[in-house]
Computed example of a mutant assay.
Amino acid sequence: MTKVYSGDRTIDGILVTVDGQPLDEHTESRCYSRNGFEWSYEGPEPSQLAYAMLVDHLGDPARAERLEPSFMRSVVANFQNEWEMTSADIDRVLQRFA
């Protein structure tokens, strides 16, 4: 089943969802930042978003941690204000890192 990840900057702040539900930050397994998610630059908050997306997608925190730096720099740091990415899109990106 394909999941849909999306992010938006709203008047109430940052909103990141997976299939319409809030994306878990997964700070219990790896904490880059306790300030929530961010994107469009390289830093701790985009790292937390990249890691959370990868943990949700892969179900493997150790693999997510290994892939996070490349995924954050090549994908999350380049997101626009509003973005959407499917699990198939993530798989395509991860194939480039293999």
Rank of each mutant, 00 (worst) to 15 (best):
V55M: 11
G13A: 11
R96C: 07
E28M: 03
P22L: 13
Q21C: 03
D56M: 03
S47Y: 14
M53G: 01
S6P: 00
Q80Y: 03
L54E: 09
S87C: 08
A98P: 01
G43Y: 10
D12L: 15
E82W: 11
S33K: 09
D56L: 06
V16S: 05
Y51L: 05
G20D: 12
L15V: 15
F79S: 01
G7T: 01
D19E: 09
M1K: 08
A50L: 04
M1T: 07
E28V: 02
G7D: 02
T2K: 13
G7E: 02
T10R: 14
E28W: 06
D89N: 14
L67E: 10
R73D: 04
R63P: 00
M85C: 12
D89P: 03
Q80M: 04
M85S: 01
V76Y: 00
S6A: 14
D19G: 05
P46F: 08
P69M: 13
F71G: 00
N78K: 13
Q21T: 06
R9C: 02
A77N: 02
M72N: 07
K3R: 15
G43N: 07
T86L: 08
W39C: 00
S40Q: 12
H57K: 03
E38W: 07
L15H: 10
D24M: 05
G13W: 13
T27H: 03
S29G: 03
S33W: 10
T27D: 09
V75P: 00
H57E: 03
E84Y: 04
E42D: 09
W83M: 03
A50G: 14
T17E: 14
L23V: 05
R92M: 09
Q95M: 13
S74Y: 07
T27Q: 10
D12S: 15
E42L: 07
I14G: 03
V16E: 02
D19V: 05
G20V: 09
G7W: 02
P46Q: 10
D8A: 14
A77M: 02
